[in-house]
Design a protein around this nucleic acid. Structure first.
Lengths: 244, 244
DNA sequence: CCAAAAGTGTTACCTATACACCCATGA
DNA sequence: TCATGGGTGTATAGGTAACACTTTTGG
């Protein structure tokens, strides 16, 4: 099924494409926070898999696969994510259906793409193999297919949701300090935020509750731990309540 | 391909489903403003097509069809919309990919759904036939498949975009008065808006310019006509600039 | 006691809202 | 001239950003 060089197409090639039914595939953009190599501050990373076949052999690509028959799109995305990277997502939402004519040089492929958030602890457990590796989300190298464009769009959506919705918690564990939430915002939105104002906004708007515990072991005054009380899963058409 | 009653499934039926590859379909939720039957004030309407075959024979459904091979998803949606209803959309954007297991009682179908806005003038031209008819967008009767859910989601998205983005102009013609824009907002968001404040918000935030013309023929002081200067097409992943 | 993060208080500014008011036109 | 929608001005409230200040820990 894989053919020739990925750059140009003959007329014969095009008419051959028109005869085949478009294939349906699922891919997922997975985000997690990991410490930066330099500063050690949390930054956005995502796992990619190496292509071991043409087309785009040896380039890195989003994890994905065919649509499993017995699952809904959402379930199939979660299952596929688990099988290719070993990760269990904390948040999963449909991103977009990409269906340009020449996304793949061989057969025409329509990809339904999801995006996911996983906790840092999860991400650390995930095995890095020869063919699965984490990359920083910004300044990514050239990827297979149109996956650079897809990652850019996912990043845009993530930042949008972060700025308005209450999504940051899905990158954190069961309990967290308000400073940690702030660090998530700063890492994703790539700008510093006033701690005083930020904590107030969180405590009034978002769905969190204070616990009786404090994070010990720091150098300074131990901060209080909080817990997220909102929805755990991603946004879906069924749930028409979330503001954005 | 069409089989049996739409309500329950035998085990044999299910395993048969699993063997077939999922079909890929396109549908579109089309919105236009038309005067209400009672008040004459503009309200939201959408065109539906009558099912002439099982499943769901004689119920109304969203216009749609298979993915044409030679077009991108966006182009295929526009073409399909043209062929089924005769309408040319002023705005077209992908809504969601619906892929639940039992959306269709026969074969499994994954529908990539778009939503569109057309001008009232267009909508008036569009021929109402035995099998194509306009309905008020709220309080819709029972539709085929999961199309009620899809329309609800499209309505939610429309209202969201309307409240933030600059989308209302796509329901209007080349030139328009600020009062007409306000009527669009009032019709879609279903609440009255202060004319004075609304005009100020528009004139500073949105991409419109004043023309030298005034709308004549009204009962009172002729209002100035404005023109939209922003983008004409829908939002797509390529264009990562629009706020929301 | 000092440094630094946790957490609180205060103020300036910006923008959405409410509403009083003037303007221009048809009848 | 009157009624009415078009269009402008202005005061008020609510929320965000900036930053001074207090609190609490480790060293």
């Amino acid at each position: 099924m894989a053919v020739a060089g990925a750059t140009s197409f003959s007329a014969a090639n095009i008419s051959e494409r028109a005869a085949l039914p478009p294939a349906l595939a699922l891919s997922t953009v997975i985000f997690a926070l990991r410490p930066s190599e330099n500063s050690g501050r949390p930054t956005l990373w995502l796992p990619l898999v190496r292509r071991i076949r043409e087309p785009f052999k040896d380039l890195w690509a989003l994890p994905g696969g065919p649509l499993t028959q017995a699952d809904s799109l959402q379930d199939a995305a979660a299952r596929n994510l688990q099988e290719t990277t070993g990760l269990a997502p904390n948040y999963l939402e449909q991103l977009y259906a990409f269906g340009g004519l020449h996304r793949s040089p061989s057969q025409r492929v329509v990809s339904i793409v999801y995006w996911a958030l996983v906790q840092s602890t999860q991400a650390d457990l995930a095995q890095e193999t020869e063919n699965v590796k984490w990359f920083r989300a910004d300044g990514l190298q050239e990827l297979a297919f149109d996956h650079n464009e897809i990652v850019d769009y996912a990043l845009w959506r993530l930042r949008n949701k972060m700025a308005y919705g209450s999504i940051a918690y899905h990158l954190l564990g069961e309990t967290f300090t308000l400073a940690q939430v702030r660090e998530v915002y700063e890492a994703v939105l790539n700008r510093s935020i006033d701690p005083a104002n930020f904590r107030r906004q969180l405590k009034q708007a978002a769905h969190i509750e204070a616990t009786d515990e404090f994070l010990q072991g720091g150098k300074h005054r131990p901060p209080r731990l909080y817990r997220y009380t909102g929805e755990r899963q991603g946004e879906q058409p069924g749930s028409l309540f979330s503001a954005h």
